[in-house]
Amino acid sequence: MSGAQGKLKEVVNLKSKFNFRLMIDDAHGFGTMGATGAGTHEAQDCIDGVDIYFGTFAKSMAGIGAFIASTEEITNYFRYNMRSQIFAKSLPMPMVVGLRKRLELLKSQPEMREKLWFIAKTLQSGLKERGFDIGVTDTMVTPVFLKGDLQEATAITMDLRENYGIFCSIVVYPVIPKGLIMLRLIPTALHTIEDVNRTLDAYSELAVKLEKGHYKGKSATLLPK
């Protein structure tokens, strides 16, 4: 949630002492992490130590659905024994065609991944320079931690969307401690430096508003422009 990578290599090294299979959920890593975008296990040089790789089509592939990659024996076992698969429907064929094209783009246009990282790093460094707490992210996931409650969080996101034209997702208690707000920005390869600067300016303004109590006790639907 905070953009910090798991310590996969250290976990893989435990296989020398214990007998286990390792499954990872690499939702944000697939398509963005590693030299070819294969995932976080590629970035940490421990692909061979991951037995079951779970990824989603909802992040870098901008679609729906997910996948599991492993040996034929393991994937066949899952296919016929996973409770969630019993009544599962196949992906719509237009989505399958689109996902195949996106996978082709991930392979053939590495410059898109490089642009994504450039935008994400520029955004993250800009936020830190303006005094924002972005935690310890070392991925393109860009969280901003603020102090406030759920009502303030919803009012902030409403203000950003309606008055600044900026979308972000919010994370609040019980995912994070009470009294904290996590705003997660979503940089993409299609964003520009102008988009980054506009976002930084908007966040600087909302931080001042939050400090002055502008969002306190207000309904997001009644937030003034």
Rank of each mutant, 00 (worst) to 15 (best):
I119E: 05
K178T: 12
S125G: 01
E73N: 09
A62V: 15
F67G: 03
I119W: 03
G37S: 04
K178Y: 10
T188C: 07
T40K: 04
K17R: 07
F54W: 12
N197P: 05
I86K: 14
N163K: 11
Y80D: 03
D138Y: 04
M82E: 03
G65P: 10
T75C: 12
M23R: 02
I176N: 02
D138F: 01
R79N: 15
G31C: 04
G148D: 09
D25G: 06
M95K: 14
G148P: 00
R79K: 13
V96Q: 03
V50R: 01
E211Y: 14
P143D: 03
L183R: 07
L160R: 05
M95R: 13
G98K: 13
L185T: 01
F118N: 11
A120K: 01
F20Q: 12
G131S: 13
I74N: 05
K7H: 09
A66Y: 08
T199F: 05
G135V: 05
L106T: 10
S108H: 13
T56C: 12
S70D: 10
L206N: 05
L222E: 11
E205H: 13
I68Y: 12
F132P: 04
V96P: 06
L91S: 01
N76D: 12
S108F: 12
V144M: 09
T192D: 14
D51Q: 02
Q85F: 15
T139N: 10
M158I: 05
M182I: 07
L185R: 01
L180G: 06
R100S: 14
H28N: 05
Y80R: 12
S2A: 15
D138M: 00
R21H: 08
G148L: 06
H191I: 04
D26W: 00
S169P: 03
T122E: 14
S60D: 03
I24A: 00
L103T: 09
E10M: 11
I47A: 00
M95I: 13
Q85R: 13
I64R: 15
P177A: 13
Q85P: 06
T154M: 08
F78I: 02
A155Q: 06
G3E: 11
A27Q: 08
P94C: 08
G217T: 08
L105I: 15
A155D: 01
Y215I: 04
G3D: 06
D133R: 13
E129Y: 08
F57Q: 05
A120F: 07
S219R: 14
P143K: 05
E114I: 04
G63T: 10
A4H: 09
K128R: 15
I186K: 07
P143M: 04
A38W: 05
E73V: 10
T137M: 00
S108R: 15
Q124Y: 04
G131Y: 11
N197Y: 12
D195I: 15
R102A: 14
R21T: 05
S169H: 06
S60C: 07
F18S: 02
D201R: 12
A88V: 07
K7L: 03
G126Q: 09
K101A: 10
Y53P: 01
S90W: 06
E114L: 11
E72L: 12
M158P: 04
L127M: 10
L103H: 03
Y203M: 15
K212D: 10
R79F: 08
V171N: 08
K9N: 09
G65V: 07
T36E: 02
V12H: 00
